[in-house]
Design a protein around this nucleic acid. Sequence first.
RNA 1: GCCGAAGUGGCGAAAUUGGUAGACGCGCUAGACUCAAAAUCUAGUCUAGGCAACUAGGUGCCGGUUCGAGUCCGGCCUUCGGUACCA
Length: 704
Amino acid sequence: GCMYDWDAELMTCVPEYYKWNQWLFLKLYEKDLAYRKKAPVNWCPSCQTVLANEQVQNDGTCERCGTNVEQKNLTQWFFKITDYAEELLTGLDKIDWPDKTKTMQRNWIGKSIGAEIKFKIDNSDDEFIVFTTRPDTLFGATYMVLSPEHPLVEKITIDEQKSKVFSYQEKVKNLSEIDRTSTVKEKTGAFTGAYAINPANNKKIPIWIADYVLMTYGTGAIMAVPGQDERDWEFAEKFNLPIIRTVQPNAGFEGKAFTEDGPAINSEFLNGLNVKDAKQKMIDWLVTNNLGKTKINYRLRDWLISRQRYWGTPIPIIHCENCGEVPVPIEDLPVKLPYEVEFKHDGGSPLSGNSDFVNTTCPKCNTPAKREVDTMDTFVDSSWYYLRYLNPKVSDKIFDNDLADNWTPVDTYVGGAEHATMHLLYARFIHKFLRDIEFVNSDEPFQRLIHQGTITNQGAKMSKSKGNVVDPAIFTSEYGSDVFRMYLMFMGPYDLGGDWSDKGIVGVDRFVQRTFTLFQNYKDVKKENPAKEIYVLGDLSDSEKEVYRKVNQTLDKYDGELENFRFNVVVAYLMELLNEFTKSLANCRKDLISFSLERFAYLLAPIAPHLGEECWQLLGNDKSIYEFKHEFLVDKNSLVVDEVTIVVQVNGKIRAKLIMSVDTEESKVKEIAYNDENVKSHTDGKSIVKEIYIKNKIYNIVVK
RNA sequence: GCCGAAGUGGCGAAAUUGGUAGACGCGCUAGACUCAAAAUCUAGUCUAGGCAACUAGGUGCCGGUUCGAGUCCGGCCUUCGGUACCA
């Protein structure tokens, strides 16, 4: 029952599409937002290939051959998403996304405000910079830690320590970041033999290396303050390094790092200040003495887009001996992915084996030159594809700008929560970049975001390779697409996944059958008995009132629930409505039956389109329901109830239920409540402490 | 490890956002129809006790706030998503 416009199909693997990935790359390159630097990859020496993190097993071996995976540094292309870190953070306030997704993006971007502090190395002209969020604790810095990959390590390590340091570096090389930063594993490290000078007090403090300091965060070096940082405390305890507290802990606090607020101690000119003021005073002092400055740091890293893979968009760069890195001129795009590729096992991209592809001439100086052989991450394709949907056939530009101006941002984007910090962040970055080069006029690509849940099968994500895919055709041929779709809606909340089961589908099938039979029983009822738009409650019998109310209630709730993707409750409402009809419709006047069924068919149509249309026709309508433009209004009067159930509680436990007319005043409720036998039996002989009355809801008596 | 979620009957799940826990559906039980079965219809169905009225307990576990907690707070447990080359 789904309808696709195959003329509007797009494929990211064809040159007509990936040409624009290349165009995007060149635009970013033009603005210095695409650049190269060294970055480590997982390398399997046996398979002679780069492995994805997913292909490296927990024990650090290759999933295909079991060989130990190594880290290898390759020069790779990056997009400078970090230039947009601040806007990617603040922009979250303006979009209607699930809070959890926004929180994940905020944490991923990981903004922290602190300071950069310069440390001199003892007996040397070398110095290095650390980032810290706690500059106020500088007097408590009793040692320094460099990341094992820090470029200074080799230079400063003294001869006697070299073997220890180098073997530690080797050991760390093949650890994953998750293992390195685990807070439960025992701290490890090695002493370089070198010392730094703490600029606050000019004391000599040892420089260590340890895996818990990452080259990819901050400056790859930290000042360690064991008194105020839990990781540093553990490290100091293990290696017998001195601990100085610079914040007065709460009374009785001992045995670990104190990370909360308190007056500064052992810190000369900071003593007595709270953390916030001490931070500021220390930063002022550092600036005055040219030793440091305020610094905002982000955990977000630049987007590594290079892949040493064959099947991807070639990166449009030419390497020339004379001119260096030269972008392919835009008019020469696309750089087509060749089909003849030899999969040489030399570690580079497979494209390097195709000499027709690799060998070219430099666009600048016309001498022989070589093409870039890396391809792009496929997240590049998906970072702007929604714009291409506007007109997939447009050939002379990335997308149709006029359409983009009118149609973006996407009103509601539906996608999995697993994309929270990658695809959904990349797309926001690229959209903002396209805005900055005046290709779109909105700040964000997706105004509203809804996650769908993932239906698993036998506990695992459905995939062809696992062979656990549920084939919808089995169910559409047995029950029809309306029933299958409706069952999917009815199974549970849209954003909640779960394991597939067809156990309840017969319930939906029964609903559809019963509905259809009902409409058949009242075939053409509307022709002779046209419905009124509105009924006066006083003119209706009790059965008719019930039906009329239920129809209006359903109509009233329907839109809101549908807009919020609450399909499961919408289906439940339709079932309740049918149950009401089964019970009371036979006792209703014919024109009220027309009224009820007409609206029922109307509400069915978005949920079960074929059934909705069939029922609509059965009523005697000539035109399709999908051409029906009239909106059924809710008779709000019918929703007003004149009686409510008031729950009487004694000490919060239900002791009676009173049916009272709406808005009954407290004294009246009180009188009836206290006369109830069951209430009496729980209050007699006890003293009343308090009475709480919530109008039309609850009367709670507190006794002692 | 870190970041983000989820946990409610035999099962899928509702719960007006702090006010009657279990709507709707599956399953099950009993009955009607049938020679019989299926289908359909009717009634019942959180647990324990009771003929019943009712009583006690109950939303992963432990504790707290409140007249009142599935809902809020603190601490756990389990499962799931992400952790930058699965996309």
